[in-house]
Simulated scan of single mutants.
Amino acid sequence: MGSETKSDSGSRSSADWVHWSFLRPTQGAIGYVQVLAKRASYLDLASTKRRSFVEQQAIKVVRGPSDELHIIDHHHWSRAWFDMGLPEAPVRIAEDFSSLSQVQFRDEMVKRGWLHPFDHCGRKISVEQLPRSVAELPDDVFQSIAAFLRMAGIYDNPGEFNAKFAWADFMRRRITVRPLNVEGFALMLAEAFKASRLPEAVELPGFIKDARQ
């Protein structure tokens, strides 16, 4: 890893570039339909604009013990760029916790809400069971469902809290999993919009009241 990535210089105009092997996911799954949507939007860009876009959307990471970089934002862009064959990962270091012990580091990540140790079925797993690389992240279709609901204005993230996980779990208990093709996903999304109008959905984080009208 290059010397520039040892500490955050404070510059936000460009990203650091590191080998993918340095990145560690902090969640147990991703929504792959969301990954495909991001890939399509990236490919829609003119080739001359892709580099600047990548640097603007750089993967937000925290440096932990052993100098590993733990992703705290843009897991889906990470997977999209990895799948497209970018030789290195664009990163921006938000915090440097490399001086902490493993226990102190984990406690700090939990305190800040930067760990989501749940698998692709929404089941709790240990931190040690989190995927070790972007390539190993499994698909959780309900994360994609929740992401599209947010884009449609059903809810928003309150502060830095990622409400998607709560919405994904809410939908997981109410929607039948269908074949993961265009028709199947569309039917699941239609059911999700109906579920978002249930009275109990009002209690979910980030719920936008006007979205029910």
Rank of each mutant, 00 (worst) to 15 (best):
4 E>P: 00
12 R>T: 10
15 A>M: 11
18 V>K: 05
19 H>V: 07
22 F>R: 13
23 L>Y: 09
30 I>W: 04
31 G>C: 07
35 V>F: 09
39 R>D: 02
42 Y>I: 14
43 L>A: 11
44 D>F: 04
45 L>T: 03
48 T>D: 13
58 A>E: 13
59 I>K: 12
60 K>G: 12
60 K>V: 13
62 V>L: 04
63 R>W: 07
69 L>E: 10
76 H>E: 13
79 R>W: 07
80 A>H: 08
85 G>H: 07
85 G>N: 03
86 L>F: 14
86 L>N: 08
88 E>G: 03
89 A>K: 06
92 R>A: 14
102 Q>H: 08
103 V>F: 05
104 Q>S: 15
106 R>Q: 12
108 E>G: 04
108 E>H: 08
113 G>C: 03
115 L>G: 02
115 L>D: 02
118 F>Q: 11
119 D>W: 13
120 H>Q: 14
121 C>T: 10
122 G>V: 09
124 K>M: 09
124 K>S: 12
125 I>N: 09
127 V>Q: 02
129 Q>K: 15
130 L>W: 15
135 A>E: 15
138 P>L: 13
145 I>M: 15
148 F>S: 06
149 L>E: 00
151 M>L: 11
151 M>A: 08
156 D>M: 03
160 E>P: 01
161 F>R: 09
162 N>L: 14
165 F>I: 07
166 A>P: 00
166 A>C: 04
167 W>A: 01
175 I>M: 03
190 A>K: 11
194 K>W: 01
197 R>I: 00
200 E>R: 08
201 A>T: 09
202 V>T: 14
202 V>F: 09
206 G>P: 01
207 F>T: 08
210 D>T: 13
